[in-house]
Design a protein around this nucleic acid. Structure first.
Lengths: 201, 201
DNA sequence: GCTACATTGGACCGAGCGGTACAATTGAGC
DNA sequence: GCTCAATTGTACCGCTCGGTCCAATGTAGC
């Protein structure tokens, strides 16, 4: 409903979002009740409805939180270098293994939210486009530095790379096997490497 | 609970599964109540519980139904030929457009089911592996006919192709734009084409 | 047309859901 | 230490959910 106006309020709001993110990631959005979340956050209903207007509103905040987590981790890598890109892919794979093949914290939430209201659908689209745009910037840097050379636009590369990531997550979660994701990421990496300009003889 | 033992029973069971598949595809599994489904199928609760032991049991039947639909359509194409493969990709894209970017009938259900019980998770894995195996067979045919030549196993090609499809679906649904799926499928196709053996000079 | 079983209608249930109301409590700034 | 807005505890609400029960009805095969 409204933003926290004190330090303490902010911390409580964050605690609710954190607990919600964790539970929703594990059980899905519809599979997680407000009461579960509030119990986990050690908060009461009045607190939640003080900061969020509805469960959907909280869900939107959780989506933002998850995206921020992903982008935060991503920022630790210099994606515009080959070694950075590879390290990032490796980290995604490690994360998926560590989280027991439960899927992408943003992607799986997005699927469920897109099947709900128009409002949430729009929020999901916005979140994904922002994610895509961070990749686009990295590929644009690579292009301008001569690391890659292709007719494909950076936007196109960002889309196909993100699709490979999401497809990898989904298949690896569905089949309960890390391999499909490993292979999908490897293919995406190999494809990008194939765009390295040929040395002119 | 038990299988239909008459013609009429079978039709009613099918009607329930059909209605469930449609609504669940539109609103998600948890977002669809039994009462919604039964109203749409013009059936009563006792009918549903006569043929299914629970909502999860019905969900498993819906997954089977959706997979059968997908494999049925797929069978109309000769995937082991380049033109057939391309036509299939085009058809997937057309379907996603026609269904208003709502995603893969199997994939989106799989995401939600995997976040639920262990039982459903196992069913999802089985379904996906069966889908994957049909692709694997097609690629194996291509390989044995000399259409492709690669170190990658048919199983590996099937996995990466399926991942590209699912990633394309997910991104296109999330961003509410057909383009990411179009590009993801195009990339998958191009990659497979790159495996055409070089004519020995 | 009898019989045995498959099928169906519909009332009912307890639990849990998202959401509301309101009074009590806290604490920052003066 | 007063004041007043920010924050919190708690009881409550109406509704919908998945699931149960059992009597009524249809019907295939004899």
């Amino acid at each position: 409903m409204q933003k926290p106006k004190t330090r303490r309020g902010e911390e409580r709001r964050d605690a609710i979002v954190h607990a919600a993110a964790k539970l929703i990631y594990e059980r899905g959005l519809r599979g997680t009740s407000l009461e579960d979340i509030l119990r986990a956050a050690d908060a009461g209903k009045s607190q939640m409805y003080h900061y969020f207007s509805s469960k959907d509103d909280l869900a939107a905040a959780v989506l933002e939180h998850q995206l921020a987590q992903v982008l935060g981790q991503q920022q630790q890598f210099r994606l515009e270098t080959w070694s950075g890109l590879r390290a990032w892919f490796d980290a995604l794979l490690e994360g998926q293994k560590a989280r027991e093949l439960r899927g992408c914290p943003v992607g799986s939430l997005a699927v469920e939210m897109s099947a709900t209201s128009e409002e949430l659908k729009a929020r999901v689209a916005d979140a994904f486009l922002r994610w895509q745009s961070t990749l686009e910037q990295a590929f644009e840097k690579m292009r301008s530095r001569g690391l890659i050379e292709t007719d494909a636009t950076p936007a196109e590369l960002a889309q196909t790379t993100l699709a490979a990531i999401q497809g990898g997550y989904l298949l690896s979660t569905a089949e309960q096997d890390l391999q499909p994701m490993a292979r999908s990421l490897k293919l995406a990496y190999t494809h990008l490497r194939s765009l390295i300009p040929k040395p002119s003889p």
